[in-house]
């Protein structure tokens, strides 16, 4: 195995020579994520107040909103890493694995967003689902990135995989502004943004806003922890795959020596 076949953006290079994906840094981040998730449970279910209209259903938003924000971030990371693979001369597979790992985590986060959003919708709107602009574009975002993950597994060499998925990763990210602005582009049952709006006013109770902030911190730490482990796991998967090929070539050479 040549090192250039599996070179990585710095953090994973050690892992390719180790049988584990954990390091001191990942353990610290993991513990921080657990603590932050504990805080989220405490604030989300305990300290934060119920909403005047939504009552207890508002607590769902402390998961719903951070997960979609982190999904946006994950898909942007996928796009940036895809661009780095495509447009740098080194063509490092580390960027490709970073793109793939981020997309996987993003898909999981969008799935969580859609699932808890449906619960919130049933409690607040009275329906689990509506073919509304925000919901529809979010569902399309989810499906697109599931497709991206399927494309990554179509076979071929690592660089073939990287090339085709990088192009898709750069195209798919265009959906994010569409999802975010859908509530302005179309009339929508879904409310407009409260925090990420353009007028600067945040119409949210202080403790609710803090709980949301705790949620963002918790899911960000979780994202980083998952990213570190998943990119390293992917590097190992590539190594194992290449070792299979190497073994086959070695067997053929052995035939020739007989």
């Amino acid at each position: 195995m040549t090192t250039t076949d599996h070179d990585l953006p710095a953090q994973s290079s050690a892992a390719t020579t180790s049988s584990a994906t954990g390091t001191r840094a990942t353990r610290i981040i993991g513990i921080a994520a657990i603590v932050a998730l504990g805080w989220l449970v405490a604030f989300g279910l305990g300290f934060s107040p119920a909403d005047r209209d939504q009552e207890e259903a508002v607590r769902i938003l402390y998961v719903h909103v951070p997960t979609i924000w982190l999904a946006y971030l994950a898909f942007v990371v996928t796009a940036v890493a895809s661009a780095m693979y495509l447009f740098t001369s080194k063509k490092s597979l580390g960027w490709d694995r970073m793109a793939g790992a981020s997309a996987e985590i993003g898909v999981v986060f969008v799935a969580v967003t859609l699932a808890v959003g449906a619960m919130w919708g049933r409690l607040t709107w009275g329906v689990f689902w509506q073919w509304d602009a925000r919901l529809t574009t979010t569902a399309l975002l989810f499906v697109t990135y599931v497709g991206y993950l399927a494309v990554r597994r179509l076979g071929g060499s690592h660089h073939q995989r990287a090339r085709r998925s990088s192009v898709l990763g750069l195209i798919a990210v265009i959906e994010i502004p569409l999802v975010h602005w859908s509530v302005r582009l179309w009339r929508s049952l879904h409310q407009e943004a409260t925090v990420l709006d353009t007028d600067g006013d945040i119409d949210m109770d202080g403790l609710m806003l803090f709980s949301l902030f705790v949620g963002v911190v918790a899911f960000t730490l979780l994202y980083v922890w998952l990213m570190l482990h998943r990119t390293r796991t992917m590097a190992m998967e590539d190594i194992v795959e290449d070792r299979g090929l190497d073994a086959a070539l070695a067997a053929r050479r052995a035939e020739g020596e007989l």
Partner: peptide, 11 residues
């Protein structure tokens, strides 16, 4: 369908 506003007010 009930349309919730973008305001969140403690009960």
């Amino acid at each position: 369908e009930v349309k919730h506003s973008d305001e969140y007010v403690a009960v």
